[in-house]
Write a protein that binds this DNA or RNA. Structure first.
Lengths: 207, 207
DNA sequence: CGACGATGTTACCCGAGGTAACACCCCCGG
DNA sequence: CCGGGGGTGTTACCTCGGGTAACATCGTCG
């Protein structure tokens, strides 16, 4: 029996533990769940990072493919964007624990530290960047804007989606609308609020 | 001598180490930098989280206040938004290592896990939420939109700012423009790209 | 049969967070 | 003068998690 099937079994075990204990599950725990001991895990995955990467890769491939497909859908742009947003939110809604993995930046990462976006998220960001670059006419600044927006949109959806998933303030559809509205410049279009009479009052905002 | 001054000195030392070694600096290292040993740190801060919190609080208060001020600036809305963006980017540009702290969600956080935004960022998000709520007329959905947007904008600026800080693709001013443009609906306004002839070609995208 | 490549084991190392127990120093009140 | 209490600090230890070394086993292929 080649290595591959064993790897799958180990990943399955790791998966169950992560589902149960969250992304902080120890290697010992994972090994125990698989009915074996640590060194085997290390033989297969090198280090914890390798295991986690394999695990995330496995789970993200689906979501990533779905997003890729959504980005290529032949729709009006607004509909396409909503479709992508909905795809992402549906994905994280379906498997919250997995989602935790995606967003969990590796804690100990000396040297190459500092990416606020975990690898899986970065792939999504690149996907968006590519889509914007190829589909939207942005003039000379095309490359810069596409890349900045790719990251920005990803981060936006990450943070908003996280909040939505945790506190469930509304339906998924409404959340999609809220985010699409933001991207559609509704913040710019809305009128000023009729300031109810306060030029410079000495009240400090409630903390 | 009361406890407070000592605390400050210890925080200063911790600060230097974080600047030098990043947010993964060990308690031992921090103690050594302060010329003392671990237990003292624990006496003052309880645990690592306490130290980090104290440290972030200290540094964020400035940035947070600056952002609060920027949000209250009496400008055209677009200018105000740009001002806020610039304030944030300037802040993280000035002290990159500190910024790492802000964005570093506490790794071991059993139970209440899952906030993609670190506490400091969440404060910023709340600030934005409040500003939107009080300044922009969004109709019946006001509360939902403001809250979703607060998180979303914060996440967007976090991710984009992180990328900008690491790869420095352009000046700060241009980055501010790029993000403001995104928030201003330029994604919606731009024309479709003149698809250079490809209905459904069997080429797979470069990986 | 022997060797190789997989399986698995126990036992250990290291570093980091965290704590216990002890010692010093100084000031303030009886 | 003396005796605390509250600050300073120490050494030595515990626990737990990532990671490794060394050893044993089983099945297959030449």
């Amino acid at each position: 029996m080649s290595r591959e099937p064993r790897r799958e079994q180990l990943l399955n075990a790791a998966d169950r533990v992560i589902q149960r204990d969250g992304p902080t599950a120890s290697m010992n725990a994972i090994a125990a769940e698989a009915g074996i001991t640590k060194p085997i895990l290390y033989r297969h995955f090198g280090d914890r990072n390798g295991l986690i990467s394999a695990l995330t890769e496995r789970h993200t491939s689906g979501l990533l493919a779905a997003i890729r497909a959504a980005l290529a859908e032949p729709l009006e742009r607004r509909d396409r964007v909503e479709h992508v947003l909905d795809t992402y939110l549906a994905g994280i809604e379906a498997r919250p624990q997995v989602y935790r993995l995606l967003t969990h930046p590796e804690p100990g990462d000396p040297g190459g530290v500092g990416n606020a976006l975990a690898p899986a998220l970065r792939q999504i960001a690149e996907e968006i960047t590519r889509a914007v670059q190829s589909q939207v006419d942005l003039g000379a600044d095309r490359d810069l804007l596409a890349e900045a927006w790719g990251r920005g949109i990803t981060g936006m959806v990450l943070a908003a989606g996280d909040w939505w998933l945790n506190s469930r303030p509304c339906s998924r559809t409404r959340m999609v609308q809220a985010l699409a509205d933001l991207l559609w410049g509704r913040l710019a279009a809305a009128a000023d609020r009729p300031t109810p009479a306060l030029p410079t009052p000495p009240v400090e905002p409630a903390d």
